[in-house]
Amino acid sequence: MNRNPVHHSAGAAHADGEHHEHIAPLSMYLGVFGALAVLTVVTVGVSELGIPQPYSLILAMIVATMKASLVVTFFMHLLWDDRLNSVVFLGTVIFVAIFFALTMTDLLSRDFLNPEMGNYVMLEEDKARWNECMETKTYDECRDKLPRGWSQANPDAVDGHHGAEGDHGAEGDHGKAEGDHGKADDHGTKSDH
């Protein structure tokens, strides 16, 4: 640890005074605004085309990311700013990604090792579709009619929900289905379920 050249951690690097002020031309702001407006029109227009499900989502997210990048780079001056601020922004995105990824790992894999686990709610429509299928076909053939995360090993578990519907009569018409509360182990708190 020898003596380093003495300098201020932040001050000396920008000792030339007006260094951090980058005044972008008006035309650039106008161009960015134009691009944002066009992209907005495009994304609304594309939604009218009726592109099937996963692709429309991907497309909309690509457009949104493009718009966000324009705002961040030009309006928020990250292009000319201290690199540290870009690190903060990108770091934040990484942490959000961690949060989403690990939470969704749980939700996406509830029935992965343990088929008796699934999500809590089965819609009325899903139940109707399931029952209709089961009238003519076997259990295995109907498995794909089940909602995601609901691959019950035992088909009775689905039928079992019919019995409970009466309890839900008051709210039944907007399709609130029976929650499978037993799957959520409320350890650590005193559950009153």
Partner: peptide, 13 residues
């Protein structure tokens, strides 16, 4: 681990 989280998640965590 015992909250109703998926077993796979449990293993990963």
């Amino acid at each position: 681990f015992v909250s109703g989280q998926s077993e796979l998640s449990g293993v990963v965590f």
